[in-house]
Design a protein around this nucleic acid. Structure first.
Length: 480
RNA sequence: GGCACCGUGGCCGAAUGGUUAGGCAAAGGUCUGCAAAACCUUUUAUAGCGGUUCGAUUCCGCUCAGUGCCUCCA
């Protein structure tokens, strides 16, 4: 009724395109999840928060969505400038003195815990790399048969030279093979050429992150897991592939190459590519390797910042723009969000009997339509937020009194829908369901009102001050 | 060196070939016992230079500044 076509910026051709799913009514979406070797930081969150909105909105449009987000629990090699590349999880396990799978368990739980706090919906399938070793070996074996991959010293590498004899490389990143060489980076001398990437790594350590393969004991490379699991659960061709912009190259480019070679079809794999831009801190990308990360754990547990505020802060910037973190911006978001939430509460508690049944010049249906236009235009959430602020002005100026009931109910249900269901903001006051506490506060207010009637400003101001110190703000009305 | 992106007030941020949304902050006012909240009012911006155009912040080119990726990263 209200929505026009959904338009998505497809980063493979850098154009905004009308979204047409492959199968009517069904959407398959794959998003690259975290490597679970540490607590997730704010930059990681941005991607997951954004795709949660995408997931929620696609469902809202009536699609049956299969949202797959993987957990990388093996194979993410760390280039430590030595001849041997180590797995991130194995490296971490040495630092913490735990088995690799204990590291995986610890940080997977932490990941889920914080995503739940941010009120993100769980994906439909959350596959792990270690759970798909057999499938990965199978694909690697076929790539070897096709002479796209080669064995070297017990490890397997993807040959870009052979790949480019049959297919075009670099369609996503626009990189040309001859330009890829970077003097700064050392590369394993197992590889025939610098641009080749690892599919299977022979193990030289004796630990439990090893598996038997036709080529001996080892573990899979990083890129192969995503090709394997995305097509396993979504099919050879699927609708949307998402992830952070930093994964565009090499990770996503490698995923495409592996899949194209495996299926022998250049039109296979994802139809729409969506990349979320980076979150910066003091103008520099927040990343674990730079060491300028702020974790959700710090913000929520140490600085007592509501996950809602963090989420709203993230969503205030369009997903394709760089988002710079600062405490001031976070405070900015906090005040803005408060305003929206308070307006909605005012709307929810508004008694319809007070309505004047007059027409006013705020057209609810045009407002709803504009909100849909904003989301449909490549998920322009900042513009949606602007319309939400417009709505708060209507509510706060008591223009709602002049709305008719029919308009009012539409307005109420849609603003609630946009804020709580599409953006997934949590209605925190509802969670504070301690009834005794509520009654206690009411009693104290009642006592204070008594002192106010007595014009005992010293005591009544003291009560206000004390309640204010624990975040309970009193809004007095006219006394007489 | 290669590929890509970006530059909008004090801060954050949309939009647009033709009066530049909004939020936060600031100032003044209304309201209030005083505050707070809310409401009303106000100030400040399209990096620079050139081109296309009747008209450019928007399109094109150059310069300057910044960011990301180049086989570690959401």
């Amino acid at each position: 009724m209200y929505h026009n076509d959904l338009i998505i910026y497809n980063s493979i051709n850098k154009k905004k395109e009308i979204f047409h799913p492959i199968h009517k009514k069904y959407v398959g979406i794959y998003v690259c999840g975290p490597t679970v070797y540490n607590h997730i930081h704010l930059g990681n969150c941005r991607t997951f928060v954004f795709f949660d909105v995408v997931y929620r909105y696609l469902k809202h449009l009536g699609y049956q969505v299969r949202y797959v987000r993987n957990i990388t629990d093996v194979g993410h090699l760390e280039n430590d400038r030595q001849s041997y590349q180590d797995d991130k999880i194995i490296k971490r396990s040495r630092i913490e003195g735990l088995e690799p799978m204990e590291i995986v368990q610890k940080y997977t739980i932490s990941f889920h815990n914080f995503l739940r706090k941010l009120n993100l919906l769980p994906p439909n399938i959350e596959p792990t790399a270690t759970g798909h070793i057999i499938e990965q070996i199978d694909i690697i074996q076929q790539l070897i048969c096709k002479k796209i991959a080669y064995i070297s010293n017990g490890s397997i590498y993807f040959s870009l030279k052979n790949y480019t004899k049959l297919y075009t490389y670099g369609i996503l990143s626009k990189n040309k093979i001859q330009n890829l060489f970077n003097k700064k980076t050392h590369f394993s001398n197992e590889k025939y050429s610098y641009q080749d990437f690892c599919l299977w790594k022979r193990s030289i350590h004796n630990h439990i992150m090893n598996w038997n393969s036709p080529w001996g004991i080892g573990f899979p490379g990083w890129h192969i897991e995503c090709s394997t699991m995305s097509t396993k659960y979504l099919g050879k061709i699927f609708d949307i592939h998402g992830g952070g912009l930093d994964l565009k190259f090499p990770h996503h480019e490698c995923e495409i190459a592996q899949s194209v070679a495996f299926y022998n079809d250049e039109n296979c794999f994802a139809r729409y590519w969506m990349h979320t831009n980076m979150l910066t801190f003091n103008g520099q990308k927040m990343s674990k390797s730079v060491g300028n990360t702020i974790t959700l754990k710090d913000l929520v547990e140490k600085k007592n910042i509501s996950p809602n505020v963090i989420k709203f802060f993230i969503l205030q910037t369009h997903y394709r723009n760089v988002l710079n973190f600062s405490e001031k911006n976070l405070l900015n978001a906090k005040n803005g969000l408060n305003r929206i939430i308070e307006s909605i509460q005012k709307l929810q508690s508004f008694d319809e009997k007070n309505m004047l049944e007059n027409n006013n010049n705020f057209n609810v249906f045009i407002w709803i339509k504009k909100c849909y236009y904003a989301i449909n235009d490549d998920f322009n959430i900042p513009l949606l937020i602007y319309y939400l602020f417009q709505a708060t002005r209507v509510i706060d100026s008591l223009s709602i009194e002049n709305m008719n009931k029919y308009y009012f109910n539409f307005f109420k249900s849609y603003i609630i829908y946009f804020v709580f269901h599409i953006l997934g903001i949590q209605n925190e006051t509802k969670n504070n369901s301690d009834k005794k506490l509520q009654i206690l506060i009411e009693k104290i207010q009642h006592i204070r009102q008594y002192f106010r009637m007595q014009k005992n400003w010293i005591i009544s101001d003291k009560i206000r001050e004390e309640l204010g110190s624990i975040g309970i703000l009193l809004k007095d009305k006219k006394l007489f």
